[in-house]
């Protein structure tokens, strides 16, 4: 990750927006990046809690896991979806690298990342609808409850992150996106992308 505050000698830091000649305060990283990183750490622990609860609940299920009379989770379709999300993360990483050299050339990869993310959420919604139709609901078993709880919680994070990315895409088109904001959003999107394979492995198999 790059500094968004251009380092001008070891002790002098200038804000990229040129608005404030910041005092000689050394910044470890842009505020937005540190704030997002800390937030992501708390979020990782939230999902760790879900995963542990899921692992324990597996062993106390009344009639096996997954219950025999309940629909199976769509492992293969979701594998495709997982690939889409990972590609989206890679596209955003590429967009950021390009952005640091030439802001305008970052528009296309950024848009690809955004669209792939939207595809992931939409595909998940379609999957949910078919699962609901087949009889897997929140109250049908702890298996179903955990599926909707964990995957739904991840989807909420994905949607929030996509909203932020969409807003930033608008800024990017207007050439007003600051590197610090981009880096912060990138950290959060990497969290959403990186969390998913773990959840996929833990919940679907």
């Amino acid at each position: 990750m790059q500094l968004s505050y251009v380092s001008d000698g070891p002790d002098k830091v200038v804000d990229i927006r040129g608005r404030m000649p910041a005092a000689r305060r050394r910044q470890v990283a842009p505020n937005g990046v540190i704030g997002t990183l800390l937030f992501v750490m708390a979020e990782v622990m939230l999902f760790a809690g879900f995963i542990s609860a899921h692992a324990v609940a597996k062993t106390t299920a009344l009639s096996g896991w997954p219950p025999p009379n309940q629909p199976r989770l769509p492992v293969e379709e979701t594998a495709v979806n997982t690939a889409a999300l990972l590609l989206s993360g890679a596209a955003l990483a590429y967009a950021y690298r390009v952005y640091l050299r030439d802001v305008r050339r970052a528009r296309v990869p950024f848009l690809i990342a955004l669209l792939l993310g939207c595809f992931f959420v939409a595909f998940q919604g379609v999957e949910w609808l078919s699962l609901l139709r087949e009889g897997l609901t929140v109250t049908s078993s702890t298996h179903g409850a955990f599926f909707y709880l964990i995957v739904g919680c991840h989807a909420l994070h994905a949607v929030a992150a996509l909203i932020v990315l969409a807003l930033q895409y608008r800024q990017l088109l207007l050439d007003r996106l600051s590197p610090g904001a981009f880096a912060g959003a990138q950290v959060f999107w990497f969290f959403v992308v990186g969390m998913w394979p773990v959840l996929y492995w833990k919940v679907y198999f």
């Binding site: 542990s52 609860a53 692992a55 324990v56 062993t59 106390t60």
Partner: peptide, 18 residues
């Protein structure tokens, strides 16, 4: 059951070290 016991041990270790 044995599985449940292991699951608690494993999740304790996981949550503690993460």
């Amino acid at each position: 059951n044995e599985e449940n016991q292991i699951a608690y041990l494993a999740s304790t270790g996981f949550l503690t070290f993460l």
